[in-house]
Design a protein around this nucleic acid. Sequence first.
DNA 1: CGGGCCTTTGATCCTCGTCAATGACAGTGG
DNA 2: CCACTGTCATTGACGAGGATCAAAGGCCCG
Lengths: 213, 213
Amino acid sequence: MLQDNAIVKHMAVPGQHYGAAESAKDHTIRLKADETIYSEGEYAFAIYQVEAGAVRIYRLTPSGQRYILSFCGKGEWFGLETGNVRTDFAEAVCDARITPFRANRNAVVPVDLLNIALTNLAKAQHKQLVITEQSALKRVAAFVHEMADGHPGDCEFDMMMSRSDIADYLGITVETVARCFTKLREKRILCLKGRLQRVVRLLDRDALISLTI
Amino acid sequence: MLQDNAIVKHMAVPGQHYGAAESAKDHTIRLKADETIYSEGEYAFAIYQVEAGAVRIYRLTPSGQRYILSFCGKGEWFGLETGNVRTDFAEAVCDARITPFRANRNAVVPVDLLNIALTNLAKAQHKQLVITEQSALKRVAAFVHEMADGHPGDCEFDMMMSRSDIADYLGITVETVARCFTKLREKRILCLKGRLQRVVRLLDRDALISLTI
DNA sequence: CGGGCCTTTGATCCTCGTCAATGACAGTGG
DNA sequence: CCACTGTCATTGACGAGGATCAAAGGCCCG
């Protein structure tokens, strides 16, 4: 397994951290909203760190349904796979900047891959809990909570994702997402602003959290 | 993050494979059904490989709901965490044998932690797809499919898990699980045997797979 | 024989998916 | 400037699927 993995084969040198010897860090890439970073089936030659904006990682089911596995915000890593072929798609949610880390010949990778893998595993497990156990309202509340965590100390922030993104992330429909946001508004837990209603002003963080439990 | 992780700190030496220098492999542990391996909050000092039987990894929500993150069968690894404290529980599903790999002082770990982490991540992502996108019948079909994959070439096998285990794994109720098994029987996709109806005889593998799509 | 555990089945309620329509806003072309 | 179109969010009506509550049957064990 490991031997077949292009990224891991060349890059797996944990213990080395950013700034190590010969860096495999490339220049930052600037992306427009919805721009594709990589697609399923492509050869995986790099992992990425988000510098600004957000990225969605998703799969398409045989029936064409999109399922968003995760959103990656500032500082988060994506693109680390088991094999050397992409199993999912990566796109910019909005205008974004990302930094690729390629496997150069003999280059030491300045990142801790194990730590990235474990962090992403923990993220995936947490999402399992959210999705499985909870009602639509709780899922949306958990999503808002997750977004709020990405903006610590800020009671107003832009989610950037469309209702459709949120729906495909939480495994519910756009209509249900909209209804849940309406309920959160009615409960005076948040306000929505902006033309697309994607800017959240958090009114009652405690009530939000208590919903997710 | 990495520095706080007892397991990773001492064991993270990928590139070294089984059989390397000074092994941290311990003796096999024999477990009775439902025996606890570790609990949430405990200090994490080892990872484990399943030799025989099956193990369930689960969390308890604040409301006391059990949510099973994964079942680990023969050959699979569990217990690799981001931090040095257990975030979940591990129990034997049935009588089982597991091998712990501890962090000895200066011991080289004979396993590839990154590979384990990535495999578990892929498992978690696949489970997200199953749980999110599909109806109860599809979830149960996917579960049976997963179990069947653990017994390649065998059209009859023991699932070992109770209906309650399956329910908590798939995020549905016991009653729904039972109804779905009834439907699968009615569709002549499988038979159930044994006192507890946990032995599956697969009659139509193709039909089962086509259900999960 | 009686009690406990597990599974199954039935009846009812409620949440969410589906279908349909509306409104707000941006961009385009006349 | 205005009509037209497209996109996105919201809301309503309806129906299906699963949760919940309740009960019964099989099997093991005391």
